[in-house]
Amino acid sequence: MKKYVVAVTGASGIIYARRLLEVLTDKADVSVVISDIAKKIADYEEVDLSGFNAVYVDENDMFADIASGSFKYDGMVIIPCSMKTLAAISAGFSNNLITRAADVCLKEGRKCILMPREMPFSRIHLKNMLNLTESGATIMVMSPGFYNKPKTIDDLVDMVVARALDHLGVEHNIGKRWSGYDA
């Protein structure tokens, strides 16, 4: 069974992390790291990230298995990814388990997806994203499309989460795929 790390950091959009966990924990072994500020934002946004069939690891546990390149896992998604976390990873500053696990993904050549929700982007944000892309990360801004004619917020969330699952190579049936205009 494939193994993935899902990290949740301090940015709005925790609902995306919840949906990813709903789908991914049914298909793979998942380790979850939630930053302290993400826990506060989850409470504020009224999104429950507990109860999934996953291993929950504290963001300060630098002895966790996912902190080592010798622990084999297939990829990592940081959803949402705060600009602070993105900058730390870009600079190679592994000050917690989230940034260390991302550093491991990049140095080991594993799939590392960072999903910021911030807008607008400053020049610093864009430079950090370019640096990370050049280092092997995939930047996926949580910007849902409207070509699938969403009816609910869940439809918008599914469109974004489906793209992340596609990039991880995880089969799913959420969201609608583009099949051309119905002209």
Rank of each mutant, 00 (worst) to 15 (best):
R177W: 13
C105A: 12
S135H: 07
E108W: 13
G145K: 08
S179W: 14
I79G: 05
D182Y: 14
S135G: 08
V141W: 04
E45M: 00
S50Q: 07
S82L: 07
K149P: 08
F146V: 14
N148H: 15
I15D: 02
G180D: 15
K40M: 08
M62G: 06
K149C: 10
V55Q: 11
A91R: 15
N128R: 07
I14S: 02
I79K: 07
V32P: 02
L86Q: 11
T152V: 10
E171W: 09
I153M: 14
A64L: 08
S31Y: 06
Y147R: 10
L114I: 03
V32T: 01
P150N: 05
P120N: 03
I174T: 12
T138V: 13
G10D: 02
I98D: 10
K3H: 09
N96H: 07
I66H: 06
N173D: 15
S12T: 05
N96D: 14
D61E: 10
R123T: 05
I15K: 06
L49C: 05
T9I: 01
R123Q: 06
D29H: 00
K72I: 08
T85E: 11
K3I: 03
I113Q: 10
C112M: 10
A38V: 00
A42W: 01
W178V: 07
M83E: 04
V8N: 04
M62L: 14
N128V: 07
V23G: 00
R110K: 13
D26H: 00
K84R: 13
I14T: 00
E45A: 01
K3V: 03
N96A: 05
M115I: 12
M129Y: 01
K107R: 13
I37Q: 03
K149M: 14
D26N: 06
V47R: 02
D26Q: 10
Y44P: 01
F93H: 10
F71P: 14
D74F: 12
S90D: 09
K111D: 13
D158G: 08
K107E: 02
S94C: 13
E171M: 11
G10C: 00
Y4M: 11
L106G: 04
I14G: 04
H167P: 06
G136C: 06
K107N: 06
L132K: 05
S70I: 14
K149S: 12
L114T: 00
M115L: 12
I113E: 12
G92V: 12
K176P: 12
H172V: 15
L126F: 04
